[in-house]
Amino acid sequence: MSPVAAAFVLLGSFVSLLSGIGMLRFRTPYARFHAAGKASPIAFLLVAIGASLETGWAGRAEFLVVAVALVLTLPVAVHLLFRAVHRTEPVPIGRDDLATDTGKDHD
């Protein structure tokens, strides 16, 4: 692999590890969904960029199709999950993670 592709691939793997750790450490389900839904497509995008440097133009087109398919669909799916959880049994956002950022109290 060319060093540039290797750099992209390693960066993507670290972002993916971050999403895994984020999913374990966050306390409220919303923060976990956020970590998983955001970081994992970005990790795949980075690896896809690294991989497309290696393959020819046909490979780049294929990776573009897969990247667009993933980036369009995964956030929508995680958003649906957010909505489903919020409508059935809304989780009280505690004092951590999101409450401090959004600035308003949810309890």
Binding site: V9, G12, S40, F44, V47, G50, A51, E54, V66
Partner: peptide
């Protein structure tokens, strides 16, 4: 999926 993409890169 990312692992398969790494294999494609390799």
């Amino acid at each position: 999926m990312s692992a398969v993409a790494v294999d494609a890169a390799d």
